[in-house]
Design a protein around this nucleic acid. Structure first.
Ligand SMILES: [Mn+2]
Ligand SMILES: [Mn+2]
Ligand SMILES: [Mn+2]
Ligand SMILES: [Mn+2]
Lengths: 146, 146
DNA sequence: TTCGTAATATAGCCAAGGCTTCATATTCTA
DNA sequence: TAGAATATGAAGCCTTGGCTATATTACGAA
């Protein structure tokens, strides 16, 4: 009776704090991931990734995209020559590929459990960044022998 | 042959921009949702939600929690009397309940497709905020007649 | 009832990620 | 090849969500 109608499963403050901290952590990577994936896509599609196109497709003003690219450079994920477009470093390309695979797997999983395609595509854009390697493995396994 | 190895499905810049915009939108609600859920949980567990406990469980310094509570009040989701703890408005309570249900459904779905429980709990903390009503419905349906 | 401790509040700093506005460079076309 | 249109860059503003450090309030024990 010291037990009220307690919520979910009991969890220690420290553990719960850790979960929130990890979620914040993942979130801080989300923009990097989206930009890197986008840049890779644009290069694959048009042979180059121009800031204006990046901005348009990300739905932001171009100075915002410029800032993001600056951060990518700072983190060693991209390079850019003025008026010459943006390029991915090896590290950036590796990340882009990983992110692209994860994105697709998340969409596929959602569709597999009955989410309408368009909704799956939309929700995946946010969900993907919080899917850990372990969870991704589980998704892949499920899709394989479903 | 105008077709390179194009990424995912072709999508117009405007549509894609819309998806990113919606993801940003959802993200801006995430903190509100987590706090409201947490406050509801604390009240259920201890009869009150003190800023110190909120901060501890969210894994942030207490001024950060205070600021978040201020935003909740601004948005009509919570009230608080100085040195007296935090309370949810009807609107806040409704949101908390909705968020709690969604949280649980997301965890259950992850487990159902084979994600280890602990991983599911951790990833869900970030994923939940990007699960739309449509997707949630699909999750519920899947869990019901799986 | 006082007083030390713990909880809360307040002030002010920082980085990230949006924005607008304006300057400058490049490119394309006439 | 000049000039217009377009793309990029630079400056500076705003909000959010972190933080630390410092004041103030409330409370329980002596
Ligand atoms: Mn994304
Ligand atoms: Mn993506
Ligand atoms: Mn959450
Ligand atoms: Mn939650």
């Amino acid at each position: 009776m010291t037990e009220h109608d307690t919520p979910p499963t009991e969890i220690s403050p420290t553990e719960q704090a850790g979960r929130f901290a990890r979620a914040r952590e993942k979130q801080s990577m989300a923009i990097l991931e989206d930009y890197v994936e986008m840049i890779g896509d644009l290069i694959a599609m048009h042979g180059e990734a121009r800031v204006a196109d990046i901005a348009e497709r990300m739905g932001v003003a171009h100075p915002t995209a410029t800032k993001a690219v600056a951060r990518l450079k700072r983190e060693g994920l991209a390079t850019s020559r003025p008026y010459r477009g943006v390029f991915l470093t090896d590290k950036g390309e590796a990340l882009a590929n990983w992110v692209r695979v994860r994105h697709r797997t998340v969409v596929d999983l959602l569709i597999a459990v009955g989410v309408p395609q368009e909704t799956a595509e939309a929700d995946a854009e946010g969900i993907e960044h919080h899917v850990s390697r372990r969870t991704l493995k589980a998704f892949e396994a499920y899709l394989t022998d479903k």
